[in-house]
Simulated assay, not measured.
Amino acid sequence: MRDVPVPAPLLRRCALLCGALVLLTSCGGGGGEGAGGGLPGAPTGVTAQAGSATTVHVMWNAVDGVGTYEVCRGGTLVKEVPGSERMVDVTRLRPSTAYAFTVRARNADGRPGPRSREVRATTPAAVADDSAPTRPGDVHGRAVGSRAVRLTWVAATDDRGVASYDVYQGDSKVHSVGGGQTAAVVTGLRAGTRYSFTVRARDAADNVSPAGAAVRLSTPGSDDGHATAPTGLRAASHRADGAYYLDLSWIPPRTDGPVTEYQIHLDGRAATSLVYGADAPRGRAEYSFYAGREAGVTHRVRVRARLADGTWGGLSAERRVTTGSDR
């Protein structure tokens, strides 16, 4: 068969495409040792804990100015998570195998910062096991300062041994520790806020126990809500199809990641919720909603955001708007 020469422009396009594919599936490159030029810094506090024979739980501290985090196994990208999250379970691993992980952050434009330090975890051996561990007993908790709590419990039992314990805040898994531990410290909380935690045991075969008794406690201090409240709220009205609508816009609060849910308060009561998907605005957010058919009615409006920990942030400054008026 005679070789057919490939045109040079096609070769160049192929090289660019192949390079892009490598970047999408690898963790090479990045922002270097520093985080200049608007790049996020390297995540700190990275830990890796085997959760079962085939999973490892990776956690890290929040980084400012993050759009997404990349979790890498060696030089391979294995998970990408939103900037509002600080943990992930890496699954489909091999039993009795040592793994190394790093985390790096990308800003809102997709540019990566430097990698974190490397952390290691070894998965336990696989076992044939259909029985879940017993629930952890005598779960207690206490606040450790205004932004953290310490939980303790009595060890669960399992015919093959407990591999790890998962800590839940409400319905969300927020922490994981090894099967030989009976305590955990959960950080990143807010002052003056009430929380509910439960603990579940997991064995090497990924069987999960029922939850232990819920621990409800409050972090000390006060939270006036100013740091978590939307700012720059503007309110106006417009008329369409014989009815009046309120037009709101605001600047999202500074949080660990994008805010995907807001609650609109009208005349002192929660009136409606606004939920964004992956397209949550990072700049000024806008929302318009039905306010009735009567002109000259004055309303009081405020907005608050649901934060990454699942709680509501502070309410924005109040604005007054009258139907039929742009003020």
Rank of each mutant, 00 (worst) to 15 (best):
M1Q: 12
M1E: 13
R2G: 08
V6W: 06
P7T: 05
L10F: 12
L10I: 14
L11W: 08
L11R: 14
R12L: 15
R13N: 11
C14M: 15
A15N: 11
A15R: 15
A20N: 09
L23P: 00
T25H: 08
G28I: 13
G28E: 12
G28W: 12
G29T: 04
G30R: 04
E33C: 01
E33T: 14
G37S: 09
P40A: 02
A42K: 09
V46D: 03
V46W: 05
Q49M: 14
Q49V: 15
A50K: 05
S52V: 10
S52A: 12
V58S: 03
W60F: 05
W60N: 04
A62Y: 10
A62Q: 11
G65S: 08
G67D: 05
T68Y: 11
Y69P: 02
C72A: 03
P82D: 10
S84C: 01
M87H: 14
D89K: 10
R92K: 13
P95Q: 02
F101W: 07
R111D: 13
R111I: 07
T122W: 01
T123M: 06
P124W: 05
A125R: 14
P133I: 09
P136Y: 06
P136I: 05
V139I: 09
R142F: 07
A143C: 02
A148H: 00
A148Q: 04
A148N: 00
V149P: 03
R150E: 13
R150P: 00
T152Q: 11
V154P: 00
A155P: 06
T157H: 12
D159K: 15
G161F: 08
G161I: 06
V162F: 07
Q169R: 15
Q169Y: 03
G170P: 05
G170I: 09
K173R: 15
K173P: 02
G178S: 10
G180E: 10
Q181K: 14
A183W: 13
V185E: 12
G188F: 01
R190M: 03
R194N: 10
F197T: 07
D203T: 07
D203P: 03
D206I: 05
A211M: 07
A214W: 09
V215D: 03
D223A: 07
G225T: 03
G225I: 04
A227L: 13
A229N: 00
P230F: 01
T231H: 00
A235W: 11
R239E: 15
A240I: 05
Y244W: 13
L246S: 06
P252H: 01
T255A: 15
P258A: 15
V259H: 04
E261T: 14
H265P: 00
L266H: 12
D267V: 11
A271M: 11
S273K: 15
V275Y: 09
Y276R: 08
G283Q: 12
G283W: 09
G283S: 14
R284M: 10
A285F: 08
A285D: 07
E286A: 13
Y287K: 09
R293P: 05
E294A: 12
H299S: 04
R300P: 00
R304V: 04
L307A: 03
L307C: 03
L315T: 09
A317D: 13
R319D: 02
V321C: 07
G324H: 07
